[in-house]
Design a binder for these strands. Structure first.
Lengths: 226, 226
DNA sequence: AACTCTCAGATCGTACATTATTTGTCAACA
DNA sequence: TGTTGACAAATAATGTACGATCTGAGAGTT
């Protein structure tokens, strides 16, 4: 769409690859669900020819962020209620497994780091959405980065980015906020106590909760699209 | 384009999209692990210009079948021991969940269809690898095609294709053959008896077993690559 | 033997041609 | 008058061709 398109995009100086920029724009909601992605338009916005854009779109398509129909171009994959539910269901299966493994290899230093991050999160207390999500991401990444199953971790990251993107569009309710903090604390407690099952259960709840809140929020988000 | 198009490439009649052909070639092992994928070469083989090939490669990259380095082109993602293990571990988490759900919605007709397919499989008795795998695929697809979580099913299909591709390169051992048949029978029995947990357990075993056989086979497969 | 240089071959980006789809106009008709 | 259908123009996707740039291997020099 025409769109504001002020300052920052003007100096389209390649702040990153075309792929990264599109990816970020989708993830952070700057491109809306089902929005059409015209190659020539994007190309001029990015300051390149069409080919790099086409290839970036194909890659995003392979990753599932973009959907394409023959001769009808690309669209931003709508992250609707169903989609979120689907992803959450998978996360509920994967995350506990990753966490369970983490409990087995966790070091004292890891726990301290987790507690440090958690302290930052609590101090922040949701006043800065962006900072919060970054901390939250590092909290979880700390647990999974060492995992041998890179494939599972990559999947987790992709899913997380999506969930996190949609949740950021809707303010976190107060009830949910206290839940998040509580769940993190419980998780840390289980990890400290070497309680793998408890940790897995805690993380399972942690994943499921936002699913409920986010997907209801999505109803508004996608209203008007078919 | 010039090119008279000789014999084998003559058959380049778009038997499918470029993407599909590359995908199949990777999946079925006609392109070997780490094999270099040169766009111009592929383009002439496919009888098109380079652009469609480039885009297909990008899509495959997004799906994880191809790895790319800047200015150094694309390679077939090596399906090594680790990779197979990673995928199996994820499947062990996802498939039982899908199966459990299937037990809840299964109809009499479904069971009959499953038994019919299973009868075909037993009759075939591994004499024709290709036919067997197609039957095996339809056996499982019958269970998952109706599932609401398309995302999970798609993930399953992708993983299955990979596992299945590598397993086809190495003959199935006799012991494994009888296991497969036994596991399918057990699965059907559980489904008939509305035993969701039993079915989930059965499918879990079904996934884990080939993992063991395949990954050991992979040692040979990737020897000689770096 | 190690180092530099050169050049063939491949990737990546730009420009253009072709084809399909969408949009807009206008006349025929209820 | 309002609706429909056909046709033309505009718009955008898809495919082709080519030039710029990068990489890697081998010849030649020190």
């Amino acid at each position: 769409m025409p769109r504001p398109a002020t300052d920052e995009e003007a100096t389209d100086e390649v702040g990153g690859s075309i792929y990264e920029r599109l990816h970020d724009d989708i993830i952070h909601g700057r491109l809306r669900a089902n929005e059409r992605l015209k190659v020539s338009e994007l190309a001029s916005r990015m300051g390149t020819s069409t080919n790099p854009v086409r290839e970036a779109l194909q890659q995003l398509r392979g990753e599932g962020f973009v959907i394409m129909e023959p001769n009808r171009g690309a669209r931003v994959r709508p992250i609707d209620e169903e989609f979120v539910r689907d992803i959450c269901e998978i996360e509920v299966l994967i995350e506990p497994a990753l966490t369970r493994w983490f409990v087995g290899i966790v070091t004292k230093a890891d726990v301290e780091e987790l507690e440090r991050i958690q302290a930052d999160i609590e101090r922040l207390n949701f006043t800065d959405e962006l900072a919060h999500s970054q901390l939250d991401m590092s909290f979880h990444r700390l647990m999974y980065d060492k995992h041998y199953n890179r494939h599972a971790v990559d999947l987790w990251i992709r899913h997380r980015e999506i969930l996190w993107a949609i949740s950021r569009r809707f303010p976190t309710s107060l009830g949910r906020q206290s839940n998040v903090l509580e769940e993190h604390r419980e998780l840390i407690a289980c990890i400290k106590g070497q309680d793998a099952e408890g940790a897995a259960r805690a993380i399972g709840k942690h994943v499921e909760d936002p699913a409920a809140t986010s997907s209801s929020a999505c109803d508004y988000h996608d209203a008007g699209f078919d």
